[in-house]
Design a protein around this nucleic acid. Structure first.
Length: 807
DNA sequence: CTAGGGTTAG
């Protein structure tokens, strides 16, 4: 018996089927047409198998037309192996059956198998068996995935099929996918007749190569020729609008969609949701979603990602639950969103179970994206150990995997680990750094003041002009600013296009940390003259510049115009700058008033700014109040315990100091160790506070002794209020002398030629006594000493500091 | 009897 008869499970059902056929047919089942009508009623595999059996019984199994129909039916129903065996049983295959089996394999993504059939077909081409118009589109589609298009293209031309709209569209698609847009475009313009599909192929070719201008250009010509956009046009062009921030075109297209009822197509509505999400217009995205009659997995993924990417993890989660309620199962991309959602919610427990879920599904092997997402998730949770473990276990790593790891370290303040990771990445030959790499590693270099390495990258980027990229350039400007090369920051700034606020923000902030408040205000004016729109970050940079330079009135004015002229509601950051500005200048009451008037809950940075102002101006009353609030909002930050113990120490309340310390210890908090670095030659030497293990320690100590004596003869008096221990005076002096910045300066002096300048980098704020001492040291040694601390720059020269002791 | 061009990501 033929295998197909065996597969009909019950013979009785076959009989029923046969009986039905006989009774419904007015004539006997002799003509092919009688069978043809039966194909329409085959809605599942079993019915199709019965029909198949029927064909065999009636001796129609060698009928090529009916067999081809059968092949296609099996494909539609998802069973490629039955298609294959049907095809194999045909003795005299014609081009229809070949076309069908090839298309079948392509449709199932089995491109290699498809190409095997193609080669077989090509090898047995003869007078009555030749590929036709229908043969090539599926083949070309397979070629897109197999990097083997040239031969087929030659064949297409030899046979003169290139002008067929279907074939040409496939060719355009093929060339676009390999990035050869000029050839794709040539095929397109050479077409004697174009249909909407041809236009779509060309538009999507440009879209998929990120060429927004090209895509919009073709779209425009299409409009000129009077061809209307259909669902395919719209769903390829909408992502381009999103990418190029073209909200006007996006909305116009949405109107076209509504006018022509194209929104019934899921692709179109999904694309609209994604576009509005990229514009941050969640209400619009939501409305499109709500209006959909049919929603698929992509629709749900899109609305979830919309909320997730606009920092609304709770609503994203709401939609994830909604998706589960309607019984749609999450796929890999859903889980990618989930990693970000629980990263944002910093939910350790669920994050871990997502990780487990991914491992059980073996999705790490399936796609790098999900692995990268997990690395990113752990990085957001601040767990770089886990992030690194996942990273190590990735079966395949791409550039983004490395970028994610580097960014993770950098954003968790682990700059040197970020740099180590970057160096390891450079050793992988098959990994090519990209823009994302630069914007992750350059800030790490800035953070540790690694000017040399940063400049090396800059040099490399000049070769491929990537330094003109706004994001990369902004990082470089920021790096030069943070590494004390204000001049280089400025010259780079004037070299690159200054069309967006980001570059202006970077340069304004650089001027600010160097204490050039007036110049920062001037650049703000230039920015306005260039018609670049200031944003909320511009004002953060400006306000902090004013604060560093003590420009109280100007700062106040900026704060006002920001609200009145720009309609920007002050954020926590803006309030923080203002509290700092007023507080440092000694207007503690005003600062407190501002805090009290805030429409939102002040966070730790606000109370922290107020507290440190209280410390400078010795207002212990307000300090106590600020501290209470501070611990209410953030009891985990060790810095505030240090500040508090500092205030207690200054007023001689040593019991308080002890109490605060044990409190911090009980809560498992450890003081961030202070460290300073100084570059000697090309090597950065790092010194930790009180560290006596440096090989040159004896020399450093001797140098500090000598300096100390000279300083005192010039009138230096140690300020013991910066010593937090209750010990004897000479021991206090010893403690001040072991501050990391002081060790670094002394090392710099003994290791570099006389009168050369010294650059110091400190991870925390520089101590007040060290600040004072450095002034004296700069005078005694006739050196310029530049100290960059966590807040700003101090340029010491001739016994004076550029900040005018206002810091 | 057979065919092309489309939406989501770290």
């Amino acid at each position: 018996m033929l295998p197909i008869l065996k597969s009909v499970s019950k013979l009785s059902s076959l009989h029923r089927c046969l009986h039905h056929c006989f009774s419904s047919a007015t004539t006997s089942l002799q003509k092919d047409a009688d069978f043809t009508s039966l194909f329409n009623s085959c809605v599942n595999i079993n019915a199709t198998k019965k029909l198949h059996a029927l064909l065999i019984v009636f001796g129609k199994s060698q009928n090529v037309v009916l067999s081809t129909k059968l092949i296609n039916l099996y494909v539609t129903l998802g069973d490629i192996s039955l298609s294959r065996s049907t095809f194999n049983h045909i003795h005299k295959k014609n081009i229809f059956s070949w076309n069908s089996i090839i298309a079948a394999y392509v449709r199932f993504g089995k491109y290699n198998e498809a190409m095997n059939y193609v080669n077989e077909l090509f090898s047995m081409c003869s007078g009555n068996l030749r590929p036709d118009f229908y043969t090539f589109p599926p083949i070309l589609k397979a070629c897109v995935h197999l990097v083997d298009g040239k031969k087929v293209h030659c064949c297409v031309f030899k046979m003169g099929f290139e002008n067929d709209v279907f074939v040409a569209a496939s060719l355009i698609h093929l060339y676009s996918r390999f990035g050869v847009l000029n050839v794709a475009h040539k095929v397109f313009v050479d077409m004697p007749v174009k249909d909407v599909g041809s236009w779509n192929a060309m538009i999507s070719g440009f879209c998929q190569n990120g060429n927004a201008a090209g895509a919009l250009g073709v779209l425009n010509s299409m409009k000129v020729e009077g061809v209307k956009m259909d669902t395919v046009t719209v769903s390829s062009i909408l992502p381009v609008c999103a990418q190029s921030d073209d909200i006007v075109n996006g909305v116009l297209i949405h109107l076209h969609v509504l006018k022509h009822g194209l929104d019934a197509d899921v692709f179109v509505s999904n694309a609209l949701i994604n576009m509005y999400s990229k514009f941050g217009r969640l209400q619009d995205a939501q409305r499109v979603f709500d209006d959909m009659e049919v929603r698929d997995l992509v629709s749900w993924n899109s609305i979830i990602a919309a909320y997730e990417q606009n920092n609304d993890p709770n609503n994203a989660l709401r939609f994830f639950k909604g998706m589960q309620l309607v019984g749609i199962r999450p796929d890999l991309l859903t889980v990618v969103s989930l990693t970000s959602i629980f990263g944002q919610l910093s939910d350790q427990r669920i994050s871990r179970s997502i990780h487990g879920f991914v491992i059980r599904r073996e999705w790490l092997e399936k796609d790098v994206v999900i692995g990268n997402a997990l690395v990113n998730m752990y990085a957001k949770l601040g767990d770089m150990n886990c992030a690194h473990t996942v990273f190590d276990q990735l079966p395949r790593k791409d550039t983004i995997s490395w970028n994610t790891l580097i960014t993770g370290y950098a954003q968790n303040g682990l700059a040197s680990e970020a740099i180590d990771a970057y160096n390891m990445m450079e050793e992988c030959i098959n990994i090519i750094p990209n823009q994302g790499t630069w914007v992750s590693i350059i800030p790490a270099y800035s953070h540790v003041g690694a000017l040399q390495q940063g400049m090396k990258i800059h040099g490399r980027l000049i070769k491929n002009s990537l330094y003109l990229d706004v994001f990369v350039a902004t990082c470089l400007i920021d790096m030069y600013g943070k590494c004390g090369r204000l001049e280089d920051a400025l010259s780079l700034f004037y070299e690159i296009p200054q069309e967006t606020s980001v570059t202006w923000n970077a340069i304004i902030s650089s001027l600010g940390i160097h204490g050039h408040g007036e110049k920062a205000l001037q650049l703000f004016k230039d920015m306005l003259a260039e018609r670049v729109k200031a944003d909320h970050i511009t004002f953060v940079s400006l306000l902090s510049a004013c604060s560093h330079s003590g420009l109280i009135d100007e700062g106040q004015k900026c704060f006002d115009i920001m609200q009145k002229e720009y309609g920007i509601k002050p954020s926590l950051k803006h309030y923080g700058c203002m509290v700092d500005l007023l507080g440092r200048a000694g207007f503690l009451e005003k600062a407190y008033e501002l805090v009290s008037s805030m429409p939102m809950q002040p966070d730790a940075s606000i109370w922290g700014a107020l507290l440190s102002a209280c410390r400078i101006h010795g207002n212990s009353e307000l300090a106590t109040l600020a501290l209470d609030r501070l611990l209410e909002v953030d009891s985990k930050n060790v810095g505030y315990y240090v500040l508090l113990s500092n205030i207690y120490a200054n007023t001689g309340k040593w019991e308080g100091v002890v109490k605060v310390r044990s409190l911090a210890r009980d809560r498992g908090l450890r003081k961030t160790p202070g460290w300073s670095s100084v570059v000697v030659g090309s090597k950065a030497e790092v010194f930790y506070t009180g560290n006596q293990t440096h090989p040159k320690y004896t020399d450093i100590y001797k140098e500090l002794k000598v300096l100390s004596a000279k300083m005192k003869s010039l009138g230096y008096v140690p300020d013991y209020s910066f010593v937090l221990q209750d010990v004897e005076e000479d021991e206090k002096e010893q403690i001040l002398n072991s501050h990391s910045e002081r060790l670094a300066i002394a090392f710099g002096i003994i290791s570099t030629p006389p009168r050369s300048s010294i650059r110091i980098f400190k991870n925390l704020r520089v101590c007040g006594d060290c600040h004072n001492a450095t002034k004296y040291i700069s005078k005694i040694t006739e050196r310029e000493i530049v100290v960059r601390d966590s807040n700003r720059f101090h340029h010491f020269k001739d016994g004076i500091c550029s900040c005018g002791d206002y810091w």
